[in-house]
Amino acid sequence: MPGMYRDRLKKHKLSFQRRVQLVSAVLVNGYAIGFAKGRIFTGGTKAVCVPVLNCYSCPGALGACPIGSLQAALGSAGHRFPFYVLGLLMLFGVVLGRLVCGLLCPLGLLQDLLHKIPVPKLRVPRKIDRPLRWLKYIVLLVTVVLLPAFAVTDTGVNPPYFCKYICPAGTLGGGVPLLLTNPSLRALAGELFSWKALVLAAIVAACVFIPRAFCRYLCPLGAFYSLFNRFGFYQMKLDKSKCIGCKKCEESCPMGVEVTKDINSVECIRCGKCKEVCPKGAVTPVYPLSDSTSKKQKL
């Protein structure tokens, strides 16, 4: 009987990925009072961008959103080159790459949980899936860089187009809690909020049927980090001498990466699912100093 109980506990034990995702979501949104009082954090830590897509208007947010900050910098009065935000993004990109998407992003956690809803899942045909993946680069270039930098409205401001019309993190993390707790903001909600709620609903629905649909097709931050996947410090390695070609890794990959062909694909979010399911231990993460370790082992 105690054995049965232990087995059940073991079965429901949170994975490493899930534990890291939960800790990260709490750390990034640690200002709990904000949710209760309907106001946002105004401390000095907001001068630093967090590596994840997390709206700075979320009542719990302790840091700044890198995508929001990038748009604000590009649309600012002087149109100065955004050294600070871009530098931080490059640093996160080189050191962590898309590990941010797989382990740290609260929106990634939400997508993983949504995909656990037991309904029949959709397998997007390759012909549609591959071209659609380019959409996130278009979103990055057009709505995060070009429009905020050059498209000025009649009132003379450059709105953050991605945040304004697409970002589900802003609607879910900022809009919904603030409107629920702040009557004066609720009174201002109109057509734009309806549009953003519709976009959020569509993304949520897509994520129930398609794993990581937002990461795959729309996220501009994931698109930026993907550029660093092949150069980053954190890499994945497939030991071809151990691989038996069972393809379990590819079946389990939420991003549809062809692990046996291109393990460090720009789409790999370093979630570690391939490593978890490999029966031969052929998939391993490679850290910056692990090369010297393997040399020692050979000796």
Partner: peptide, 21 residues
């Protein structure tokens, strides 16, 4: 260039566009 101050100034105010207002 004190760009972090600009980030802070933007982040400590509720971004109405971001929340859909």
């Amino acid at each position: 260039r004190r760009e972090h101050i600009e980030v802070l100034q933007k982040a400590v105010m509720i971004c109405l566009e971001c929340i859909g207002i």
